[in-house]
């Protein structure tokens, strides 16, 4: 197992399948991430308000608010948050909507953990680049 220092990158996993989310949390934490979970859309939004993560892994099908609704709300209130959509069936339509709502990418379940980690790191880096751009703009 690679143990790259990830400097406690904060990752929130929003998925109503508790056993899936908790196992991903454990596996990411073993790899030096600071991962936590939320098991519904509303819970995810509340967790983000309290302590915004660096990257959000978001399941599309959840009770109360579904993933796309969460994404729409985040686009308004946390536009800088890097979001990776997790989906059972990678339909083009769900992907397109995710793309239009500003998600960084989407990954199909079952997840390849190494692929997920590289996406998390890419998403975090792109978020850094984005905020640099925003900072640049505001400075102008």
């Amino acid at each position: 197992m690679t143990t790259i220092e990830r400097n406690n990158l904060k990752v929130l996993i929003a998925d109503d399948e508790v056993e899936f989310a908790s196992t991903i949390v454990t596996r990411l934490n073993l790899r030096k991430f600071a991962a936590t979970m939320a098991n519904s859309g509303k819970e995810a939004l509340a967790a983000i308000e309290q302590d915004p993560p660096d990257v959000l892994l978001l399941d599309l099908k959840m009770p109360d608010l579904d993933g796309l609704e969460v994404l729409a709300s985040l686009k308004e209130n946390h536009p800088g948050l890097a979001v990776i959509i997790l989906t059972g069936h990678g339909s083009f339509e769900a992907g397109r909507q995710g793309m239009e709502l500003g998600a960084f990418d989407y990954i199909m379940k079952p997840v390849d953990l190494n692929l997920l980690i590289s996406k998390i790191e890419d998403a975090f880096q792109s978020k850094g680049k984005q905020s640099e751009k925003t900072d640049g703009k505001s400075a102008v």
């Binding site: 056993e19 596996r27 069936h89 379940k109 079952p110």
Partner: peptide, 16 residues
Amino acid sequence: HEIKNTLSIINENAGL
């Protein structure tokens, strides 16, 4: 969809 979910949990736990 449900089967994908169970497979995902099995996959993650096998990985763990």
